[in-house]
Simulated assay, not measured.
Amino acid sequence: MAAESPSAKAKAWVLFDRIVACAAPDGVHSNPWVKGPDGQLRFEPDFEALARLLGVPLHLKAGTQSGVPALAFDVWLSYELRRAGFNADQAWPRPVHPRILPAPIANLLKALPIGLRKAVADRIERDGAITGATSANGIILGKNYLKQVDVVISDWVTGPELLISTKRMDSSYGKNAPNRIEESYGDAKNLRLRHPLAALGFVFGLRSDILQKEPATAEWLFDLLAKLGREDDAYHATCLVLMEYASDGAIPETGEEPPVTALPEPGQELEGEDVPVPASDAAVDRDIAQLPRVTILKEEIPEELAPGRFLAAMVTRVLGATPVNMHKEARKRRASPELR
C-alpha cells in the first residue's frame, strides 16, 4: 500500500521551524525591547521573520482549510514571546515537535537519567500527542465551553497566563469579516470570564488589497478591531497585520479556516498531529530562499492595532499578574532594553 503523502501542515512545519531556528541561532534570541531618545520603552517585533513565515503558505499553495495560512501567525507570536524571555516550553506552539509540552513533563525529562531520558523523549517525539501529557492543540476551558486557543502560556501552578487567538483573511472581505469578528467577540467573553487574570489577545491578519478593493470594509474592520481591545470583558489588546504580496501567489480560497467541530472532553486529545517531514537543512534552506516575497505594511496599520504595541501589552500584563520571582528572564529583558 502506498504511503500517505504528507499534509500541507506537515510540510509547513519543516519550513516554519527552520525559519525561527535561523532567526535565533543556537537558540539565542534578540531582545525585542528598545528605548528611544525620548525615553519611551517599546517592543520592536521581528517583521523580517514574520514576512518569511507568511511566505510559507504562499509557497505551498496551502488553502485556508489546511490551517497553514493562520498557523504562520501562531508560530511568529510564540517566537516573539521567546524573544521576550519566555522559554521554549512555556510559549506554545513550541519551535519543535510536539507543539505543546507542559512544564512538569519537560522538567521530568531533564531529571531522568540519560538513557531513560532519551527513551522517553523518543517516545514523546514519535507519538506527538499523548493524552493528558503532550498535545498538538491548546484547548482551554472557558466559562461555558472548551476553546482551541492558538498561542498559549500556561502551567498547572498558574493556570492560563496568556491566550491569543489568531484569524486571517485574504479575500472575500465583505462576506467573511462579520462572521470572523462575531466569533472572536464570543470567544473573548467565554475565555475572559473564566480566566480574568490571563493576558487575552486577538491578532487579525489581513491582505492589504482590501484597502483598494473594499476601503469601506477596511475602515469598518479597523474600527471594530480597535473597539474589541477596549471592552472591559473582551480582549486586553488587539492587533492588525497588513500583508502585501503578488496576486499570482494568492492563498487559494477553499472556504473558512478548518472548524474544530467536536472538541474532546478534558484530558482527551484531538486526532491528527501533523509531524514535520524530515528533510536536510540544505534542502529546506533552498525552499526558504524561494519563498514568495511578503511585505508588512507597518505604516498603514493604526497605532492602536500595531503589532509592537500589542506584544508589549501582552508581555507586560503577564509580568504584572505574576510575582517578581517568576518569568525572571522576561523581566530582565524588559528592564534592560537596547538604547536607540
Rank of each mutant, 00 (worst) to 15 (best):
E4I: 15
V14S: 15
I19H: 10
P25Y: 01
H29I: 00
G36V: 03
P37N: 11
G39Y: 01
L41F: 00
R42Q: 07
P45A: 03
P45V: 01
D46Y: 02
R52C: 05
L53P: 04
L53W: 04
V56Y: 02
P57I: 03
L60Q: 03
G63S: 10
T64N: 14
G67D: 01
A70I: 10
A72L: 04
W76M: 03
S78P: 02
L81G: 02
P98D: 05
I100L: 13
P104Y: 08
I105R: 06
A106I: 03
N107F: 09
L108P: 01
L108Y: 11
I114E: 13
A119R: 15
V120T: 11
D122Y: 04
R126A: 15
R126L: 15
R126K: 11
R126S: 13
D127W: 09
A133G: 00
T134K: 00
S135H: 03
N137E: 13
G142V: 07
N144M: 07
Y145V: 06
D150N: 10
S154H: 10
G159F: 12
P160K: 09
E161A: 13
L162V: 08
L163H: 02
L163R: 09
K167S: 09
D170R: 08
S172A: 14
K175V: 15
E182F: 12
S184K: 08
A188V: 04
L191Q: 08
R192W: 00
A199C: 06
A199P: 02
G201W: 04
V203H: 02
F204H: 12
G205M: 11
R207E: 15
D209K: 13
E214L: 05
E219M: 09
D223A: 15
D223Q: 10
L225F: 05
L225S: 04
A226M: 08
D233N: 11
D233H: 07
Y235W: 06
H236Y: 06
C239S: 14
V241C: 14
S247Q: 14
E253S: 10
P258R: 07
V260R: 14
V260S: 14
A262T: 13
G267R: 09
Q268P: 01
Q268N: 13
E269D: 08
G272I: 03
V275K: 13
V275S: 09
V275G: 00
P276D: 06
D281P: 00
I288A: 05
V294E: 06
I296S: 05
K298E: 15
E303N: 11
R309P: 02
R309I: 02
L311I: 01
L311K: 02
L311C: 06
A312M: 11
A313K: 13
V315A: 07
L319P: 02
A321Q: 15
H327Q: 06
H327K: 06
E329T: 09
R334M: 15
A335Y: 03
A335C: 03
E338I: 14
